[in-house]
């Protein structure tokens, strides 16, 4: 782990990713103290105003401060991203562990279910689940969590099986140590590396999916700000007020890009074969 940190320090792309992700996290954490206005307050006399000293990123068609909304949107994005990856990762961890552990009909059943989930395009699956459960914050997170479960299940299962086939496990078995204990002790560190990479990449995927759902009107509901929803609403007015489209778009792009930069460098670090 130390070695990885040392190598990450050398990797300039990775550093940009870390800094970018850090800034977005700070924005999400301390956003409310940063933003000069309430994100839902409508300043009726100031509709569709360009960026100014008062309204840094301008205002939207209801006269709401775009900067405050973008900052609040970062909070929503990160919140949804973290919780839904949390759901997907926990489900995936449990299923993957069980599947890799037993490698019998249980494994078969779990993996076939994951195959079925994999057979749906991500967005379509999330969309269908949200449509069924009803579009709101919680259901968006559940839907995205389910979408990301199969990837985590496969990652964890592969790691468990790899550990089971390692020599020291086999020899531990031979001298009669309880295999479950040994496996459990060794699985965690071996799962960790791919798990971290997967989580970083899934986080960017989750943020992207949330933005897409909200863009389609099936994610976060108004008046709560979400970058995707803001971008969708902007389309009507963007020719006369480009800032209402540009800022949320920029934030979505930069955030996802930074997470991908980070995930990508982590993957290269942990799998130097690709270098």
């Amino acid at each position: 782990m130390k070695e990885i940190m040392a190598r990450l320090k050398k990797d300039k792309v990775g550093i940009v990713g870390v800094i970018g992700v850090g800034l977005v996290l700070l924005l999400g954490l301390f956003g409310p103290w940063l933003s000069p206005h309430d994100s839902t307050e409508m300043y009726k006399e100031h509709m569709l105003e360009g960026p100014s000293a008062t309204y840094w990123f301008g205002t939207d068609e209801f006269g709401r401060d775009i900067f405050s909304r973008v900052v609040e949107g970062a909070r929503v994005s990160l919140y949804v991203g973290l919780i839904s990856v949390g759901i997907g990762a926990s489900l995936g961890f449990v299923f993957g562990l069980i599947a890799g552990f037993f490698q019998n009909w249980v494994d078969n059943l779990i993996m076939r279910i994951m195959d079925i989930l994999f057979a749906f395009p991500d967005i379509l699956l999330a969309l269908t689940i949200v449509a069924v459960l009803g579009p709101n914050l919680e259901n968006t997170m559940i839907a995205i969590g389910i979408v990301f479960t199969p990837v985590f299940t496969r990652t964890v299962r592969a790691a468990v099986i790899a550990v089971k086939e390692m020599e020291f496990i086999i020899s531990a078995k031979a001298i009669g140590v309880k295999t479950h204990k040994v496996i459990f002790r060794h699985v965690s560190p071996n799962v960790l590396a791919p798990f971290i990479v997967q989580s970083t990449l899934a986080l960017s995927g989750a943020i992207l999916t949330e933005a897409a759902l909200s863009f389609l009107g099936l994610g976060i509901q108004p008046p709560n700000p979400s970058w995707g929803a803001m971008l969708n609403e902007s389309r009507q007015y963007m020719e006369i007020a480009p800032w209402i489209a540009i800022f949320p778009a920029l934030f979505i792009i930069v955030t996802i890009f930074c997470f991908n930069l980070l995930g990508d460098s982590l993957r290269d670090l942990l799998d130097p074969k690709l270098k």
Binding site: L208, A245, I246
Partner: peptide, 18 residues
Amino acid sequence: SLLGVSVPNFALATLLLL
């Protein structure tokens, strides 16, 4: 390539149309 993966299609479409 990272940009390609990172820029959501709806954001790219919106900006492009703009």
